[in-house]
């Protein structure tokens, strides 16, 4: 399945909705999309991942890229990720730079 990707910037919060598979074939396109945020005032990067079925190492790298290039001080959230996706992130230890939550409330977070 292809990657589904929607992105919007809402008062300093970059909301990125992911679905399908995120791997080496579509990670470059995803990265290009994220590059549009460079230089903008972003304090939070939120990946809504309920519909993300699979993530490979290239996909994770783009998330790390987001943190490094868009804002080292921005908080990164991973929301509603499925267990398989969570497992990869946690076991590889790449969970340390993001906050993992079931849901996201822009007002309180």
């Amino acid at each position: 399945m292809e990657l589904q990707l929607q992105m919007e910037l809402d008062e300093g919060t970059a909301k990125i909705r992911l679905g399908g598979r995120l791997d080496a074939t579509n990670a470059p396109a995803f990265q290009e999309e994220l590059k549009k945020l460079i230089g903008k005032d972003v304090s939070k990067i939120v990946f809504f991942s309920e519909d993300l079925e699979y993530i490979a190492s290239a996909g994770l790298r783009v998330m790390i890229f987001a943190k490094q290039r868009i804002g080292m001080n921005a908080q990164v959230y991973l929301i509603g990720a499925q267990q398989t996706v969570l497992d990869v992130i946690k076991m590889s230890g790449l969970d340390t730079f993001m906050t993992i939550q079931d849901s996201f409330d822009q007002k309180t977070q």
């Binding site: 490979a56 990869v88 076991m91 590889s92």
Partner: peptide, 9 residues
């Protein structure tokens, strides 16, 4: 994560 090919990470 060997089954996901992420042993290096």
């Amino acid at each position: 994560t060997g089954k996901y090919g992420m042993q290096v990470d």
